[in-house]
Nucleic acid binder design. Structure first.
Length: 198
DNA sequence: TACGTGATCACG
DNA sequence: GTGATCACGTAA
């Protein structure tokens, strides 16, 4: 079955918060030599140039340059020296918006995820932005990759999420952003066991 | 609650 | 060059 990849237009929209919300229930897929892994997106966060939580708040740098590109590419970086974070860039060229993927519910490639994560149990293996990158095999090599390509992409598998089951809350781990840390730009699926710790 | 870990960025 | 900082995860 041909994958139903989300088109550029999905990412190109002007409202990054809308995109973050719409990504809940979509499926993130990576394909590498070792095989394919995929999982349902159950938690996201929106980031925009105009607020202090965003890496691009102070302008363009070598690291965040990709956030200024047209929507539909990946932004991957290393945090705390050991954890990779996977974001999708949204909006149009020149405007820095991105959505951080924070948690997945595994669909395919569970064995491979376990191998990569060096853990025996599948339990909670993708319930956090650092952990899911490890399980999916995402690292800086995939930074700036097109999501219309065949290494990493997001597809619509027709999973229906009732609007009422998407909960908005403040974002995690950005206390330094002051007031902007209070923006309700984190979205997650109600009662889903894979959502990251609060 | 504490801390590992290394890229990144703003200073000189 | 150098030093502070960090969109986390684990152990305890």
């Amino acid at each position: 079955m041909k994958p139903n990849k989300l088109p550029e237009g999905f990412y190109g929209r002007a409202n990054v918060v809308e995109v973050a919300k719409d990504l809940i229930g979509k499926v993130l897929v990576t394909t590498q030599n070792e095989g394919t892994t995929s999982g349902i997106i159950v938690e996201t966060e929106a980031y925009s140039q105009s607020e202090k939580g965003c890496h691009a708040y102070k302008g363009k740098t070598a690291r965040n340059a990709v956030m200024f590109e047209n929507g539909g590419v990946s932004y991957v970086y290393l945090c705390y020296g050991l954890h990779h974070m996977f974001n999708v860039v949204t909006n149009q060229n020149g405007i820095a918006n991105a959505v951080l993927i924070r948690a997945l519910e595994p669909l395919k490639g569970g064995d491979l995820m376990q191998q990569r994560s060096k853990t025996v149990s599948l339990s909670r293996i993708t319930s956090g932005p650092g952990k899911l990158c490890k399980a999916m095999g995402i690292d800086k090599q995939l930074n700036t990759s097109s999501l219309m390509g065949d290494q990493v992409w997001i597809e619509d598998q027709g999973i229906h999420i009732p609007k009422g089951n998407i909960i908005a809350s403040p974002r995690i781990g950005i206390d330094y952003a002051g007031q902007d840390a209070l923006l309700p730009w984190r979205f997650y699926l109600k009662d889903n066991g894979w959502v990251s710790r609060t």
